[in-house]
Write a protein that binds this DNA or RNA. Structure first.
Lengths: 348, 348
DNA sequence: CCTCGGAGCTGAAACGAGTCAATCGGGAGG
DNA sequence: CCTCCCGATTGACTCGTTTCAGCTCCGAGG
């Protein structure tokens, strides 16, 4: 091991110091408090850094003291545009705070989510935003208890944690009310699994709207997941019903389901909204570009992400007097062709 | 500062050792080579870890020796489903190798991309996959030269780097050939900016197909970006042309543009494919669910990601004898209603 | 001539975990 | 009773960086 360079691997500050003919401390000063170092020395050190290709070792730096200046958002499913929009809001806030943001895709896999949480905690990230797979509360609670700030995004949380959600009961109510006002009486809710809190909330909201109208009924068509493929399968099931018993409108738990359902309807020769009106949820970009532009319940996605990140930062920065908040935003209904009122239709 | 616990912050192995009445080395052995530790001691240490809520400090661990067991994929735009599909392939390969994957969204922002690359290098990740914003080659070359394995995804790279791409010239040729075979002669290419290599490749491919057919012509309608909004604007421009001069078919550089274009056509009362046939590119999930199911050039997205990750791992594992590879996949045309032959049209 | 002060720089002590040669204890063998 | 051996455990050292008390000059003030 000859002096001046390590035999292998990346050069360290020590190598830089040796080669520039200064002490370790001076190299550190050049990097962290350049005003303390004289111009010629600073120049020499910087040149040496350039020549050697020295790159700070973040592990050592973090070990010694500084935080990680890193946030992570554990996303439920990056293939879902809803979450990427939320992520954009998060990124915006992280940028503003000068923090880097890592996206972790749990892909609805509890084991992978757990793996990410372990790793992030071991890496001592400044904070974690998460849309959890299931209510693996214990895991998240443990993380928070040990000192990592956590904000739950798009899922409810108890009073001992920050969360940012959209009022799903209200959203369900809005959707169902709209269908009832366009004279539908047999309405199907398409979505699942019921273990997802939002799904049940939207059912609840739709249920309360339907309960206000005598003679109206809501049937639930449970799906195994909230994606396009499941929407298609739901479409098959609906199309298989005799027309007299078939619902005249479907309220889907998200736009992916709605798009799949819509697609299957078209495929099977049923018309939307004539044979089946459809309301989606999330109002993703593609909802408007669909075969029949989709009526959908819109959520303030970027705002959701931005707010969540701000809460996280507030918690991370002022750890002492932090008050956990559960922020709830209100969704809005966006009406498009998939529920257009048919003049010919008469209530059953 | 009472013994057994640090005054603040997370407990360390030393705290565990003290409280369990063993030495530091034993705690380390319990965690890393449990077979060396007697049953009762191991149990006692594990209990103490549980009680204290000890969590390994990954920084210290990495500093001492072990790698980071982490990969990162710097994505151009997580809002584009194409990339999330690629990311899924990457995740798959990372999982198989027991590595964690962080997604970094550059959002087409060169500064953010640079920030991520800096951070990742400082964190000594095992390797970086990247779909770069522009040809910021110097930055990436520097990263690679200093020892971080890099694989470029969905963009070409020189011989001194691994890359995984899809043959865009071929894709352009496939698309244009299909339009020519369905008797179109005035074809528009919609896409841009031209600085993007893939855009020019697809133009080249389309151009060579058109050149093979006497009397056929290709006009290029350049856009500022590859998203839905730009597609709509292109639609306005096309619709504004007198019907006699208007192209009868459009080949879009990606599906987002195509969906926007399609949407604008429908809005302006033009029919697809009657007034304008449309071919997209990428065959994202929503292409099939569009107003008129979209003919599109399909790329093996997950395979792309998986292969890229495997190349990266090969480079990271066997650093000595690594041969850089430039893998090129072939795209496939998926024909749907947006280019259906008018004569073959089935009555509704 | 001595002292003081400050700019510039130094060097050692952390930070937390992994490693490994050295040590301890106790049972078997002589 | 003494050795030897072996499994279990120890603790000093290391990784790369930050920090900080302290050192050395050197010029100004007394």
């Amino acid at each position: 091991m000859r002096p001046g360079t390590s035999p292998r691997g990346t050069p360290s500050m020590k190598d830089v110091a040796l080669r520039a003919g200064v002490s370790l401390g001076t190299v550190s000063n050049v990097l962290n408090r350049p005003e303390l170092v004289s111009e010629p020395t600073r120049r020499r050190v910087l040149d040496t850094i350039e020549v050697l290709g020295f790159v700070r070792n973040e592990s050592a730096r973090q070990l010694r003291g500084g935080g990680s200046r890193t946030l992570a958002y554990v996303v439920l499913d990056t293939s879902n545009p809803f979450f990427t929009d939320v992520a954009r809001g998060v990124q915006e806030a992280a940028d503003a705070a000068g923090l880097a943001l890592f996206l972790c895709n749990s892909g609805e896999d509890a084991a992978r989510q757990a793996g990410f949480l372990d790793l992030l905690e071991q890496q001592r990230v400044e904070g974690v935003l998460i849309t959890p797979v299931d209510a693996d509360e214990p895991r998240i609670a443990a993380l928070a208890r040990r000192g990592t700030p956590v904000v739950v995004v798009d899922r409810g949380a108890g009073p001992d944690r920050c969360s940012v959600t959209v009022d799903d009961v209200l959203g369900g109510d809005l959707a169902a009310t709209h269908l009832l006002e366009t004279s539908h009486r047999r309405i199907a809710f398409v979505g699942g699994p019921r273990a997802i809190g939002q799904v049940t909330d939207r059912i609840t909201g739709a249920g309360q709207a339907v309960a206000r109208v005598p003679g109206a009924e809501l049937t639930v068509l449970e799906t195994a997941a909230l994606n396009v493929a499941e929407g298609r399968r739901a479409g098959e099931r609906l199309a298989g019903l005799p027309a007299a018993r078939r619902p005249t409108a479907a309220f889907c738990a998200n736009d992916l389901l709605a798009l799949g359902l819509l697609q299957q309807m078209v495929r099977l020769g049923l018309r939307v909204p004539d044979d089946l009106a459809i309301v989606g949820y999330d109002d993703i970009e593609f909802a408007e570009a669909a075969a029949v532009p989709l009526t959908s319940v819109s959520q303030p996605r970027q705002l959701l992400g931005r707010t969540a990140a701000q809460l996280l930062l507030a918690e991370a920065r002022g750890p002492g007097d932090h008050e956990h908040q559960q922020v709830v935003f209100a969704p809005e209904l966006v009406v498009r062709a998939s529920t257009r009122l048919l003049s010919a239709r008469t209530p059953t």
